[in-house]
């Protein structure tokens, strides 16, 4: 897209940030803490409870901050967490 053809922000609807929803498969978690440590928006914390294997799975504390970057899913070595996009977003230029 050429620069001149870009949609001008004036008058158009304010772009909404992408929101994600986190799903944790707790019994797969081995409590390594990668997702908690490397979540860019600090959505997760290590919970106090135990899963069936005796590890502390992560817990979602600030779900409103999740931007569906998917890094937790990538960095989880146990395939125990993933995110899904909460709703379709109209403006795609703002996904970053």
């Amino acid at each position: 897209m050429r620069v001149r053809e870009r949609i001008k922000p004036f008058g158009s609807e304010k772009p909404q940030p992408v929101k994600g929803e986190l799903i944790i498969i707790e019994d797969r978690c081995k409590g390594c803490g990668f997702c908690v440590e490397y979540c860019p928006n600090d959505v997760l914390i290590v919970s106090d409870k135990f899963n069936s294997k005796g590890y502390h799975p992560p817990e979602v504390v600030h779900e409103e901050n999740c931007r569906y970057c998917g890094f937790c899913q990538l960095v989880c070595p146990d395939f125990a967490i993933f995110s899904i996009e909460e709703k379709a977003v109209e403006s795609k230029s703002n996904t970053a």
Binding site: K53, C76, P77, D78, F79
Partner: peptide, 17 residues
Amino acid sequence: MPHIWCPGCGIGNAVSA
């Protein structure tokens, strides 16, 4: 799943990638 790798192992990440 769960796989055999230990907690904190990076092999799962390589598989994920």
